[in-house]
Nucleic acid binder design. Sequence first.
DNA 1: ATGACTGGCCCTGCCAGA
Length: 260
Amino acid sequence: MRITTWNVNSIRQRQAHLLDFLREEAPDVVCLQELKTTLETLPRAEIEDAGYNVAAVGQKGFNGVALLSKHPIEDVREGLPGDESDSQARYVEGVIAADGGVVRVASIYLPNGNPVDSEKYPYKLAFMDRLVAHARSLLRLEETLVLAGDYNVIPEPRDAADPAAWEGDALYLPQTRAKFRALLALGLTDALRACDDAAGRYTFWDYQAGAWQRNKGIRIDHLLLSPQAADRLDGVTIHKHERAKEKPSDHVPVTVRLRG
DNA sequence: ATGACTGGCCCTGCCAGA
C-alpha cells in the first residue's frame, strides 16, 4: 500500500494538480496540509469523484489538514490531544482498512514557529511535546502506524542545501531538532532515511530568490513509521517533478510504499 | 552584491508562510 503526504499550500489553488496526482499515482491514502479553507469550500465532490473518501479539519484562510483514502476512514480524531484551547486545524488521524491490512494514519501540519522571539516558537515546541505524548500512546497499540506531514523541521545539516542559512530559524534550532529526535527515540522510523542516506533529498523549495532553480531546498515533509510499519517498508518516492509545474505548491508530495 | 513569491482576506495593503 502507498501513503502520500503533501502540503498543497491552498487546496483550491492546487485542485487541478491534486486531481492529476490522484489519477496518475493513485495512492491508497493522501495526507494533505495547508488546505487554507473551511470545509464548505473544500472541493469534496471532485475528490470523491476521483475515488477517495475524505476526513478533514478546516480553518478559514490558514492551516487545514485532510486524509484522503480509497478505503473507508474510521475512528477519526480531529486535533491533537493535550490542549483543548488549541483551535488551529493542524491534525487529523484515522484508521484505514486497506487490502493489505489495517493502518492508522495521521496528517500533521506542525507549526512553523517563526519568528522565534514571538509566542509562535513556544507554541511550536508545545505542539511537538503533545505530538510526542500522543505518538507514545499510539505506539502502545502496536499497530501499523504512519505519522505523515509537514513537520517544519530540518532534522540534520544534510537536509538543507545551505544549513548555515537556517541557523537561528525555528525549523532548525537545536531545541526543534531535539524534539524531532524525541519522536524518533520513541521507536519511530524516518521512512526516507531508512531508505536513503544521501544529502539533497529536499521536499520544499521557497518561492523566493529562485530557490527551485538553484536547488536551495530543505527536507521538512516526513513520514514516521511505527515498528510494525517499518517492518513493511518497501521504498520512498519524492515527487520532485511537481515543483517544476506551473503554479506549484512550494512543497512536493512524498510517498511511502509498504509491503502487503 | 542584492533581492527576488504566493495565497487569503476586512478587496487592498497586510499577515502568514519557511
